[in-house]
């Protein structure tokens, strides 16, 4: 219990420090911190619509955060959430707006979400296979796959998947039957929130209640020991990457079906990168990740309004993400006891 309280205190202190440092950045960029903060707050919580917007932005962050966290728990550095998010959205769009668009909603939407997860899982699985079969570091391969996914998206939107009028590089809009229903009529909030929360529950059960989840933890903590205990390390790593990419792909499909409807270039405003901060701030725990996704969701909703009304680049939310992460790492690793205790073994 005392441990949890110290942990919470550390996270709060880290957040406060990060906010302070970010205000400093605003001042250095010669902007008005008060205007920035009030625009941020009103965009995140100022009205029922803003609160719904915050919750809407929480959905993709929660799903990608869960995905990244699963990989990180196995000490697999999946930095490719961005690419997996994109191919997930691509697969969902291909089904929903082209191949199966005449199916009824109760079949079409589940199929789209499944296809999105499968595409994301395959994309991450490629990196997982490269790691287990050929020893290619997944940090590099997942990032390369991000760039490749972005070009694949661009190609498809200029070519085979371009909308009928060929006016701009965008996909055909999803039909109404492929759109996730609204959860709070009159606002942007959609059923994706329930899906994301459900996945948080599934991930929690998987990590803490199943043999596979335990094997994953073992592999992350000490692969040698896991091997000695009879765990197939390569297989565990591969399935972990599949799960991880599947969640990020699902996020792309849910965002497409719930909010955007149409695919375009720069479809993801960096959810894959934000996922790293979300997962770590949430201490790689599904419910912690929900809390941190809410925090970053509010930040994203607010920074949009900050850009519109205070003229500050929405990149400020990256700054705050990164500073939060760095400060948190610093707080995490500072030991409040002397770090080096030198015990003389014997005195000559």
């Amino acid at each position: 219990m005392a441990e949890t309280i110290t942990q919470a205190a550390r996270i709060l202190a880290a957040l406060a420090t990060a906010f302070g440092l970010t205000l400093l950045v605003i001042l250095l960029a010669h902007q008005d911190p008060q205007a920035a903060l009030s625009a941020l707050a009103s965009g995140a919580f100022g009205s029922p619509y803003a609160i719904a917007e915050t919750l809407t932005k929480t959905i993709p962050l929660l799903l990608t955060g869960l995905g990244v966290a699963i990989a990180f728990r196995a000490r697999l550095w999946n930095i490719g959430g961005e690419g997996q998010f994109l191919v997930g959205a691509l697969a969902a769009s291909a089904l929903g707006a082209y191949v199966l668009k005449s199916l009824p909603a109760f079949v079409l939407i589940p199929l789209m979400l499944l296809a999105g997860s499968a595409a994301g899982a395959l994309w991450a699985g490629l990196a997982g296979w490269m790691r287990t079969a050929r020893g290619v570091p997944e940090v590099i391969s997942t990032i390369m796959l991000n760039f490749i996914a972005a070009q694949l998206l661009s190609y498809l939107l200029h070519g085979p998947m371009q909308e009928r009028a060929h006016a701009q590089p965008a996909s055909e809009a999803l039909p109404l039957t492929a759109t996730l229903p609204s959860l709070w009529p009159g606002t942007t909030l959609h059923w994706g929130l329930l899906i994301a929360l459900g996945m948080a529950g599934v991930v929690a059960v998987f990590l803490f209640r199943t043999r596979a989840g335990f094997a994953l933890k073992l592999v992350g903590a000490n692969p040698e020991a896991a091997r000695a205990a009879g765990v197939d390390v390569a297989e565990t790593r591969l399935t972990t990457m599949l799960w991880s990419g599947g969640l990020c792909g699902l996020a792309g499909a849910v965002e497409l079906s719930g909010v955007v409807g149409t695919l375009y270039e720069n479809y993801s405003p960096g959810y894959g990168f934000a996922a790293v901060a979300v997962a770590l701030l949430g201490r790689l725990n599904p419910w912690g990740i929900f809390a941190s996704a809410l925090f970053f969701g509010a930040l994203n909703a607010g920074s949009g309004s900050m850009e519109r009304s205070a003229g500050i680049s929405a990149n400020l939310s990256y700054v705050l993400q990164a500073i939060t992460l760095l400060v948190l790492l610093a707080f995490q690793w500072i030991r409040w006891t002397p770090r080096r205790v030198i015990v003389p073994e014997s005195t000559p």
Binding site: L28, A29, V319, L325
Partner: peptide, 24 residues
Amino acid sequence: ADQVVVGTAINILALGLTGVFFRA
């Protein structure tokens, strides 16, 4: 702290800082 995690945070920081100052 873990080197990959810190490196990733540095990347996000640079992306954000250069974006904010370029706009300013």
